[in-house]
Design a protein around this nucleic acid. Structure first.
Lengths: 168, 168
DNA sequence: TATCCATCAAGTGGGAAGAAGTGGTAAGAA
DNA sequence: TTCTTACCACTTCTTCCCACTTGATGGATA
């Protein structure tokens, strides 16, 4: 590999939960270059492998799944089962399934983001990866900053949710 | 490492509660160096081990959990109704999971705080660790001073009101 | 009993090797 | 010929390791 992560503030690899399930966490900043190439955070690569599935996400971001996770989700969707995606939302299913693209990660850990997905997520050059449990999310940096600020403004909601999660 | 902690103002060592649960207490001052390294208070190290999880907290501080404690918390997240279709759940998961980082403590007891977390907690060089039961909190020194002062003012007011109400 | 010294433990700083991100060029496909 | 993909090279950052400084502690001696 070449230059080296400067924007990126990795500290430690993502964790695999005791159940063997993938557990992505953390926030990483990267840049999309002229050729629309984008480095997958090094810490995500081990977990995600050589092929990932990119789909339009919610709130102007993209979702990035492992192939395995994608199979599980799309299986649930097509089976009409209730899942994290709750089958009653057909529109959402089409949105997710229809926009999905399988993407190869190259030898140095980069992937190509197709234009229609870049547009959806309003990605410019500076982007942010988020590890959110079993998926990664890809945000334009500015969009993410704004979204995050909005969340943090609702501090009381956050406190309540933290309490529910067992944090006192 | 050399002879001994100087900036650090230990108040009380950590203790293990009778139930075997971790119980951190005390207030410690440390500094973040040029490479964003930060010594974990020596008193916390035994309890917290070689790996800790750092997450954004409330009131502009960071939470530092043991891996075990983090597993418990993230378990709550998956156990609960965390449908991806609910906007507030998405936001909370992004806040907590996306903000979380697993951090290794190095041979001399230092950890690296990633930039996005330093930003959130407004950490400069002087920081304060607080032991808060089963987690540690990390504050910028100035922010902490201000926060504590505000709390104390409120406490005074409260005490006064209670006194007026006949409670001594 | 008090002071001084020696030893220990903890924090801080810097350098070097390796890992990772980014840019460019060349080869192949459309 | 042009766009895409694969490969290569360079630079920067991260991380590990080592050394130095400093505060604390315990023991010995006056």
């Amino acid at each position: 590999m070449g230059r080296s992560g400067k924007n990126n503030q990795t500290i430690i690899p993502t964790i695999i939960s005791p159940h063997g399930q993938i557990m992505l966490i953390g926030e990483y900043r990267h840049t999309i270059d002229d050729k629309n190439r984008l480095s997958l955070p090094a810490k995500f690569r081990k977990e995600m492998g050589k092929t990932v599935v990119v789909t339009p996400g919610l709130d102007s971001c993209l979702f990035i799944f492992t192939v395995k996770e994608w199979d599980r989700i799309s299986g649930h969707l097509s089976a009409g089962e209730s899942s994290i995606l709750q089958a009653d939302n057909r529109g959402f299913n089409r949105f997710l399934l229809g926009g999905a693209v399988e993407v190869e990660v190259d030898a140095v850990g980069r992937m190509l983001i197709p234009e229609h997905l870049r547009e959806r997520a309003k990605l410019k050059t500076k982007v942010v990866f988020l590890g959110v449990r079993d998926r990664a999310e890809l945000w334009d940096e500015a969009v993410w900053q704004e979204y995050r600020a909005a969340i943090e403004r609702k501090a009381d909601q956050l406190a309540e949710k933290l309490g529910q999660a067992g944090v006192q």
